[in-house]
Design a protein around this nucleic acid. Structure first.
Lengths: 196, 196
DNA sequence: ATCGTAACTGATCGTTTGATCAGTTATGCC
DNA sequence: GGCATAACTGATCAAACGATCAGTTACGAT
C-alpha cells in the first residue's frame, strides 16, 4: 500500500540517524534500518540507491536542521562579535541537548580519513568552520575573547557543547545523581572559557 | 615457525587498537586485524578466543598504559588538590597527544548502552572517575576550582584534552596551517577553564 | 633423540551483509 | 474507467563475517 514518498523517506531517515549514530556506519545494517522504519530493505535502496547515499541524505537532513538552530543568531547582526558568538553557542548547545546524534556521527567519521570524511568537510563543515572562526578572530581583535588559534577555540567550544550529551549513557552510569538540566551549566562553562 | 607467544599477542593487540579505533567495533574484522599483524585469522582466535575478548584484552592493555601516564602525579601527594589535578591533566594531555586511539575508542563505546559499555564502566572507568571527581570536589572546597558538578567538570576536562587529537584528520583538513604542538595550548586552555 | 605441548595454518561452516531484479499493488491523470 | 507510473515486496545473489576444527610445525623438557 503505497504511502506518500516523503513520509516513507522521513521514517527511513529517522531510523538511519538512530542506527548510524549508535552502531557506526559499518555496524548499522540496511535491513535493520528498514525494519525499524517498517518497510522492506529493497524499498530503502529503491529510495536512496545505496547505503552510502542513504548516509549522505541523512547527513544533509541533520545539518540542515543544525544550521536553522544556529544561523539565525549570526547573520547580519550589528552586535559585537562576542555577543553574536555566544548567541550562536546558546543555539548550538540547545540543539546538542535536544539531539545528541549529530555530534556522535561527526566523531565517528572525524577520526579516519575516509571518503565519507572528505565529503563531510567539503559539503557541510568547511563553510561553518570558516564563518565561526572568522567571528572568533574578530572577537579576539576586539579584546573580548581569549587568545589562541581560532580553529582550536572552535573545536574546544564544540567538544564542550556536545560531549556531555553524546556520552550520556556513559555519564548516566557513572553519576546517576547528576541533573538533567545540563544545558545551562554547559553554556556558562563555555562563556567562562571564551572570555579573555 | 612459532614465535614467542607474547610477541605475537602484542602485534595483534597493536593492530586491533588501530582497526577498532578507526573503523569501530563492527567495522573492524578479525581477518583484517590478523592480516595487519602478519598471522592467520585462526591464530588470532586461538590466542584471544573471540572477537569480544580480543577487544577486552586491547582495552585492558590501553587503560594500563593510560593509568601509568596519569596515576604517578596523583598518589599520596602533599600538594593541594588543584596542583595534583593539573599535574594529572598534563600527564593525560601528553598521553592523548601521543595516542589518540583511547579517546576514539571511548567515544565509540560511550554512546550506546551496550554490554561493552557496562564492562568498560565497571572494569576501568568507575575507579578513575571517583578518584578524580573527589579531587575536583576538594579543589572546589579549597576555593581553587570553579563551581559545578564534579562529573561535569571531569568530562569537560576529558573532552578538552582529547577531542583535538582524536579528530585530527578532520581538523587537519579544515585548518592545515594549525601547528602540531597543540598539547601546550590545550593544557593552558584547561588550566584557564578550571580556575575559579 | 624423542615425546608432549604450545604455536600456528588452511579449509570450511552457517550467517549476515549490500545489492539486484522480476513481479505486485495502489495512486494520480486524462 | 483504463492506464502509465511511482511505491513497494520477496526471492536471490556473491562476498565477507565470526567461529570451529583437523592437521602441521617447532620448541623445550626429560
Amino acid at each position: 500500500m503505497p504511502r506518500s514518498s516523503q513520509t516513507t523517506k522521513a521514517q527511513i531517515l529517522a531510523a538511519a540517524k538512530e542506527r548510524f549514530s549508535t552502531l557506526g556506519y559499518d555496524g548499522a545494517s540496511t535491513r535493520d534500518i528498514a525494519e525499524a522504519s517498517g518497510c522492506a530493505q529493497s524499498l530503502l535502496l529503491y529510495h536512496f540507491s545505496s547505503k552510502e547515499l542513504l548516509w549522505q541524505a541523512m547527513m544533509d537532513d541533520l545539518f540542515s536542521k543544525a544550521r536553522s538552530a544556529v544561523a539565525p543568531h549570526l547573520v547580519a547582526s550589528t552586535e559585537p562579535a562576542m555577543a553574536q558568538l555566544m548567541a550562536g553557542v546558546r543555539g548550538f548547545v540547545a540543539f546538542c541537548a535536544a539531539d545528541a546524534d549529530l555530534h556522535r556521527l561527526m566523531v565517528q567519521e572525524g577520526r579516519a580519513d575516509t571518503g565519507r570524511l572528505k565529503w563531510l568537510v567539503e559539503t557541510h563543515l568547511r563553510a561553518t568552520h570558516d564563518q565561526i572562526t572568522a567571528l572568533i578572530a574578530q572577537a579576539q581583535a576586539d579584546g573580548a575573547a581569549r587568545p589562541g588559534h581560532p580553529t582550536l577555540i572552535y573545536y574546544a567550544i564544540i567538544s564542550l557543547a556536545a560531549t556531555i550529551f553524546s556520552l550520556s549513557p556513559e555519564i548516566d552510569r557513572l553519576a546517576p545523581d547528576m541533573g538533567l538540566d545540563r544545558a545551562a551549566e554547559v553554556v556558562a562553562i563555555i562563556e567562562n572559557f571564551l572570555a579573555d
